[in-house]
Amino acid sequence: MNCIKRILEYIIVFFVIISFNFFIPRLMPGDPFTFLSSDEGSVHSSYTDEQIEKYKAYYGLDKPLWEQYKDYVYNLFRGDLGYSIYYNEAVSSIILKRVIWTIGIVVVSIVLSSLLGIFVGAFSAWHRNSAIDKIIYSIMIVFSEIPSFLIAMLLLFGLAAGKGWFPLSGGITVFGEYKNVFEKIKDIVHHGFLPVLALVLSQTGGYYLLSRNSMITVLSKDYMLTASAKGLDDRRIIFRHGLKNAILPVITRIFMNLGSVFGGAILVENVFSYPGIGRLMREAVMVRDYVLMQGIFLNICILVLTMNFLADIVCRKIDPRVE
């Protein structure tokens, strides 16, 4: 019963999302063709009015909105995201090519920032109110309040442009040739380092605060006293008894945060011109490529929904009290 209710909830949420996804791009001023014709700043036009009419008919944009919506939902259920107006390529294949980059930096940064946040948070909680705790706490507060793109720009100016330790843009050396697969990986890591660092720095604070807070609550619980009374090793007390309990809200947070990490990643990608979905989205918005925008939003939404669902399952797995 409960399960059916949850699935129904997800379906409703999904419909609301695809509807927003359809209408919002179309409510923006302009359309793909006028923008195609005014190449950022220049008023130069490559299409005649007749051509625009023709293209509009071709992409079905001349139909009433309601009709378009119907087609859109129908195609969606066939798994067809349509053709990009700007790239003249299937949206799904464009996204597939780009999304891998974004997922890469997002997953790596989430793993790193959550691990870092959890352990430093637990450490801070264990030594709470000591000097070291206070210092870490203040640093983390500062970082958690700075937006990721700002950190990204500072890193870009400082470490890439200033010191020249890292490449300024891109996800991989263009036309690079590698002796072996390790060389390639090294190059990718080299390119991805700063975007990931920017995301990690902006994310860790949140995880740290949550983990510290949660651990402090857990430390005052009776079962922690039971654990110390049992004469167990400190390591077992902290990790097996403490952290296992303290980590629950952090895990939920990791999955819930996914949306905002994607948001952050989109901005960070643009700072570093990283070839991920974030830059793709900026490009799609610039040219009002409705189909591509829809496809990207939809993918992100599905991803976030899936993650929420996973969070549910994972929590259930860890916490036997959740029915």
């Binding site: 619980k221 009776d222 039971t226 654990a227 008894h241 296992k244 309990n245 860890i318 916490d319």
Partner: peptide, 8 residues
Amino acid sequence: LDVLNPLL
């Protein structure tokens, strides 16, 4: 209720 660890 809390005297035993709820997750073990």
